[in-house]
Design a protein around this nucleic acid. Structure first.
Lengths: 175, 175
DNA sequence: TTCATTTCTTTACATATGTAAATGTTTTTG
DNA sequence: CAAAAACATTTACATATGTAAAGAAATGAA
């Protein structure tokens, strides 16, 4: 991004403190906001008919958090996002960003590159989910989130891996 | 896309016929090409260490086919794409498209929207893979690809569902 | 049409994972 | 600190799915 675009871009974010257990985005809403994680941990999770939760993503320091699918499609949000710890965010209206696209093509370019990057990450995860056993996915999680394991309950990690806490406990005990 | 952008965009594609079993993209290559499927069926699949295949995507009439992750990252391609039937494609160098971005922001906009759309599709699939049993994923496959089941071998569908042909056969026999 | 090849189904057994409940451990809070 | 709550582990049993091999059915080539 050129410096002018970057200046405009950063100017639309404002600081927001948000407490452990507080919600950032709710299922059923039409999501409007995106934020940069200054500090803290959030999770995005899907809730199925049977009331089971699947932790889709953990957001940590330095990443952007938002109900991305809802933001880009304008459809109802299917996932919940909330805080696993107290968080400091820099938050913006997503529309205030998309409105910059016409005047600042470099910002739209960044949006394209981000979307492409997110796709690549999702594809990687898809392949892992299908071709690897939970034990191997656990090893990958530990590599990708070296600190997280100490900071959040194990049942959230199990949910991220797509297994029950019971099964995660078994996997852990076998090493 | 405005009509000028669209005209330029379509002008860079050329027709290509490609036979059943022929390859469109190979693992290890640096992918360069993208194509529109005029007719026929292709599959993108991932091959793990143990030699097991996972069919990631089926491409049918009217869709774009390409090793998307490799194209947008410039990294080595991790997946293979080849024809399950004879195909007629309209093919282009991906770089010839990306080179248009500066001059035709509407084309880059389309690329952004496509990337966002692909992400949303992948996220949907991710959730299905984790939260649904193979039986339910099979029902979704049948809905999303109403004709495909008659046109390709069942073991390719099993591979798409992330199960063995044996398990797919069991699922089918129970309905 | 016939034979060979490919694909599909079935069987028997093994394993990863789920469920439910009991128990142990850690953390929170009054 | 003590009690309660939250979390993690273990146990016993159930189930979805894998593996390997055999047999059945469908397809394709001579």
């Amino acid at each position: 991004m050129d410096s002018e675009s970057l200046a405009i871009f950063t100017s639309i974010f404002t600081e927001l403190e948000i407490k452990k257990y507080d919600s950032f985005a709710k299922k059923g809403e039409f999501s409007k906001k995106i934020a940069f994680v200054e500090s803290g941990i959030l999770r995005a999770y899907f809730n199925n008919d049977r009331g089971e939760e699947y932790n889709k993503t953990f957001f940590t320091e330095g990443s952007f958090v938002g109900a991305y699918s809802s933001l880009v499609t304008g459809e109802q949000n299917l996932i919940d996002i909330d805080c696993l710890t107290d968080c400091v965010l820099y938050i913006a209206e997503f529309q205030d960003i998309t409105q910059l696209y016409d005047k600042y093509p470099h910002i739209e370019r960044s949006a394209r590159i981000l979307a492409e990057y997110l796709f690549v990450k999702k594809e990687k995860r898809e392949i892992e989910l299908v071709t690897l056993e939970a034990k191997e996915r656990y090893a990958i999680f530990q590599k990708e989130h070296p600190n997280l394991e100490q900071l959040i309950p194990q049942y959230h990690i199990a949910s991220y891996l797509g297994i029950t806490p019971t099964q995660l406990s078994r996997i852990r005990s076998k090493n």
